[in-house]
Design a protein around this nucleic acid. Structure first.
Lengths: 191, 191
DNA sequence: GTTATGGGAGTGAATATTCATTCCGACCAT
DNA sequence: ATGGTCGGAATGAATATTCACTCCCATAAC
């Protein structure tokens, strides 16, 4: 196992443990064991545990962001772009339950609070697909005239909740249901 | 300070600390200090820390449930009942930020996972206002024909997200905006 | 009326456990 | 051999829980 693989093993082990058991269930000792390395080795790759976790988040965030951007076409109507992006996102969560659960834990921990603030106020917005989409929808009076934050809540609240319920096994989200859910999210924000 | 007041002081201190700083920021020592009692005293009132936290949740849950039930009138149309209940709920969250933040922490911790399962599968459903409401709405074809779990997600997802954003100061949810938000939740689930 | 006695409530220092982080000897590849 | 890489026991800080003790007050004994 070369250096780069070992780094990845550590990240995977952390992802899996945090996703399945939360931060409480992921002490360094367990992460090391799951990754098949010694506890000390982790510190050769990551300065601190916090940094390990933030790296995990950052890489995941980038992966999702580029994934969403791939299918994006600024020439299509607002509604279509929204449905496309939202469907892709929900599909991603369903297909990657560990990643989803990790993100959930992350956002609801001291780590996540910081990010949320940036997401909403930060410069980062300029590169944010959804922000552009919703702003344009508002301007064209296709989307309700509500503050961006509220529109975000209406669009993402149901999506995240339904993804969690599927992953926890409370509902089987097949293709039909998935499309209907995204449609219902749109119903919430459309004018 | 009599015995019952002291118990309440302990619960209040725990609520406040957990709401403001999460479980990490609420060691027994801090709770004791905030409540103005010795650490040992807490164990005269609650067998373990877990039990203290579960008690806090249980009492809060009951309080909200009875609160919602008060304004309930089974004779009104489905839509009106939904809007009423949802408005009351959102108003409660806005008016009681500490309670809301505590609930959020609770649900996204090992404690909460257990409850969620009960909420959805449990016998508890028979007494659940929203469940009745949505079932009836589906039967009358006023509400989308989707699984109950998905309808829950559509109804509660945005509400909780928007409440959090308000409490964290990302948006000022005045009376108008509050009503519009609840209306948008309805748009998401209505046929 | 005064003093002794009992018990329940409260305390916080002591304990045991769990964790992130460090460190040093072993182990490899060159 | 020697440079770097690893592992996992050692460390120290933080934590929940316990326990030996103090305090207070009601009642009883005189």
């Amino acid at each position: 196992m070369n250096t780069s693989e070992k780094r990845q093993e550590i990240l995977n082990a952390a992802l899996e443990l945090i996703a399945e058991q939360g931060f409480h269930g992921a002490p360094i000792a367990s992460i090391a064991e799951h990754a098949g390395v010694g506890a000390g080795t982790i510190y050769r790759y990551f300065e601190t545990k916090d940094l390990l976790i933030n790296t995990l988040f950052q890489e995941l965030h980038d992966k999702i962001h580029t994934g969403l951007m791939e299918g994006y076409n600024a020439d299509r109507p607002v509604r279509e772009r929204f449905i496309r992006a939202h469907t892709a996102l929900l599909r991603f969560f369903i297909a990657n339950p560990l990643q989803f659960r990790f993100l959930e834990q992350y956002f609801h921990s001291p780590y996540g609070a910081i990010f949320h603030r940036d997401q909403i106020f930060g410069q980062r917005g300029s590169e944010d697909l959804y922000r552009m989409l919703l702003e344009e929808g508002k301007a064209r009076q296709i989307v309700k005239d509500l503050p961006l934050v509220v529109l975000f809540a209406l669009a993402f609240g149901p999506l995240l909740t339904v993804a969690r319920d599927h992953i926890l096994g409370f509902v089987e989200l097949d293709e039909t249901l998935l499309v209907q859910t995204v449609q219902a999210c749109w119903d919430g924000i459309k004018q």
